[in-house]
Amino acid sequence: MTDASGQDPGEADQPDVPLTRRDAAEARRSVPAAAEPTAAFQAHVRAARSEFESQVAHARAEFEEANERIKERTGRDLLLATVIGLAIGAVLILSLIFVKWAFVVFALGAALLGIFEFSRALVASGRRVDLVPQLVVATGLILTAAFLDLWLHWVALFVAVAFVVVWRLVAQMAAHDARRYGDVLSDVLVASLIQLYVAFLASMCVVLLRQDGGEWWVLAFIIVAVASDTGAYAAGIMFGRHPMAPRISPKKTWEGFAGAVVAAMIAGVLLGLFMLGIPWWTGVIFGIVILVTATAGDLGESMIKRDLGIKDMSSWLPGHGGVLDRLDSILPSATGALALYYLFTPLVA
């Protein structure tokens, strides 16, 4: 029987609840089946993340352990030294490539900081150093290197040394103390050494910079000096067994020096061919000369520090020591690079 609407009364009165419950039950039964792939994927992601974190932690622990071994052997923090070295290198390269004369400011600042470190170390060892005159005279010597002819620059060096020597003698006479003759003579020699070792050698770099294409020669000799230092460091860490100069620098080895020779020669040839435009054999000579001057500068500063009883000139550059500790191989190499410029440029032309 149907009502006026054409529906069975029993059907009209039947509630929808049982059907809804049935659907809900089926939905609940279907949820685990659909969620199983998602749950498995999430578990896989968590496991992968845990494994990755474990590998990162393991690699970090191994790196820190290796860094501590290197630090114990060389006295340097490898990570900090690398970061600071890259930052300094970036500033140096940018100044030379894009604004040539901006390098003069860079060189002047580094030289003055080196003089300050050196003077402070000398004062701590009992010498008397007139810091302000040293800085003023060094500034004049470095800046005039950009304008004076080379022979006039030698005259400027003589004036600078004479000025600091006379200043020290006058200051000593004004002191009216009982300082011995030998100590006064030592103070005078030290005053001259600061100008000759730091200011004059830094000014040679400025003299090279002012030459035609000099910025590329400056960049090249610094890269070779850094390459030789890096080669010596790496080879010394891996193969170093036989000390090179135990009384001067106990951690330098002949194996490290061999690594420096290889690195310097490779860098010299590549830079000579692709940056300086000189034949490959002159690149070999360039690399060897810079290697010799850089090694001599490094050993020379080590001898000075040993005489002063210090490990580093300062701690301004973590992982490196002081500014002068980074300039020790570069300062004498500037003179060697300038001599090679005068020698090779006519051959290339």
Rank of each mutant, 00 (worst) to 15 (best):
M1V: 15
A4D: 14
S5L: 15
L19W: 13
R22V: 15
D23A: 14
P32R: 10
A43H: 13
A47F: 08
A48I: 08
A48C: 05
F52Y: 13
F52W: 09
E53R: 12
S54R: 12
Q55P: 02
Q55C: 03
V56P: 06
H58I: 10
A59Y: 13
A61R: 08
E62T: 14
E64P: 01
E65D: 15
N67V: 10
R73L: 11
D77M: 09
D77C: 05
D77E: 05
L78H: 09
L78A: 14
A81V: 11
A87G: 09
A87N: 11
A87D: 06
G89Q: 06
L92Q: 09
L92C: 02
F98A: 08
K100N: 15
F103H: 13
F106R: 01
F116A: 12
F116V: 14
F116I: 14
R120P: 01
V123M: 08
A124M: 06
G126H: 07
G126Q: 02
D130L: 10
V136F: 07
A138V: 10
G140Q: 08
L141K: 03
I142Y: 04
L143N: 09
A145Y: 05
F147E: 04
L148P: 02
L148T: 11
L150A: 11
L152E: 12
L152C: 07
V159W: 11
A162M: 12
F163P: 01
V164Y: 09
V165L: 12
R168G: 06
Q172Y: 08
M173G: 05
H176R: 07
R179M: 13
R179H: 08
R180C: 07
Y181S: 14
D183P: 07
V188S: 15
L189N: 07
I194F: 03
I194E: 00
Q195C: 08
L196Y: 00
Y197I: 01
A199V: 03
V206I: 14
V206G: 10
V207N: 06
R210N: 14
R210E: 11
G213Y: 09
W217K: 01
L219M: 11
A220S: 14
A220H: 02
A220R: 04
I223E: 01
A225H: 05
S228T: 06
G231V: 05
Y233R: 07
A234C: 05
G236A: 07
M238C: 08
G240L: 13
S249L: 06
K252L: 06
W254G: 02
W254K: 01
E255G: 08
G256W: 10
A258L: 12
A258S: 14
A264W: 10
I266E: 09
A267Y: 14
G268L: 04
V269R: 08
L271N: 06
L271I: 09
L273P: 10
M275L: 14
I278L: 05
W281N: 02
T282W: 12
I285A: 08
F286D: 00
D298H: 02
D298C: 04
G300H: 00
G300F: 02
E301W: 02
E301K: 01
M313D: 04
S314R: 05
S315Q: 15
S315T: 15
W316L: 13
L317F: 06
G321A: 06
G322V: 06
S329N: 01
S329Y: 03
P332K: 00
T335R: 00
Y341A: 00
Y342F: 01
F344Y: 03
F344C: 00
P346A: 04
L347S: 00
A349I: 01
